Computed example of a mutant assay.
Amino acid sequence: MRRLLGLGLGLVLLWAGWWALGAQAVTQGTRALFASDARLHAPQSVDVAGFPARFDLTVKEVAFSDPRRGTGWRTPVVQLSAPSWQPWHLSATLPARQEMDLPGQTVSIAAQALGGSLVLKPGPALALNRVAASAEALDLRSTLGWDLGINTARLTTRQVEGDATRHAITLDLAGLATGGWLARAATKATLPPDVAEIALRAVAGFSAPLDRHAGNSRPALRSLVVQDSRIRWGTMTLAAAGEIAVDATGRPEGRIDLGLTNWREALQAAVALGLVTPEAAPTWERMLAMFAASSGGERLDLPLVMAGGRMSLGPLPLGPVPRIAQRQ
Rank of each mutant, 00 (worst) to 15 (best):
A208C: 10
R158T: 07
W181R: 11
E161Y: 04
D211N: 12
D194Y: 06
P219H: 03
T170L: 13
A208T: 07
W146Q: 04
A220S: 08
A199R: 14
A183M: 12
A202L: 09
A168M: 05
D139I: 00
P192F: 12
G205H: 08
R166D: 06
Q159N: 01
R154I: 11
I169E: 12
T190R: 15
L182H: 09
T190M: 12
A135I: 00
D211F: 09
S217C: 04
E197K: 13
L171M: 12
G149F: 06
E136V: 00
L173K: 12
A183H: 10
A196C: 14
T178M: 12
R166Q: 15
E197W: 08
A196M: 14
A137L: 02
A177T: 13
L155T: 07
N151C: 00
S134L: 02
A196E: 15
D194L: 13
G180E: 08
A174W: 09
A137D: 06
A220I: 00
A183K: 12
A186G: 15
Q159A: 06
L221Y: 04
R158L: 09
G162P: 03
A189T: 13
R218K: 09
L148Y: 01
W181K: 11
K188F: 08
N216W: 04
L155D: 04
W146N: 04
T156A: 11
A189Y: 10
T156L: 07
G205I: 09
L200T: 09
V195R: 06
S217G: 03
P193Q: 14
R218I: 01
S134N: 01
A183R: 14
G145Q: 03
L140T: 00
A214K: 02
A196Y: 11
R218T: 03
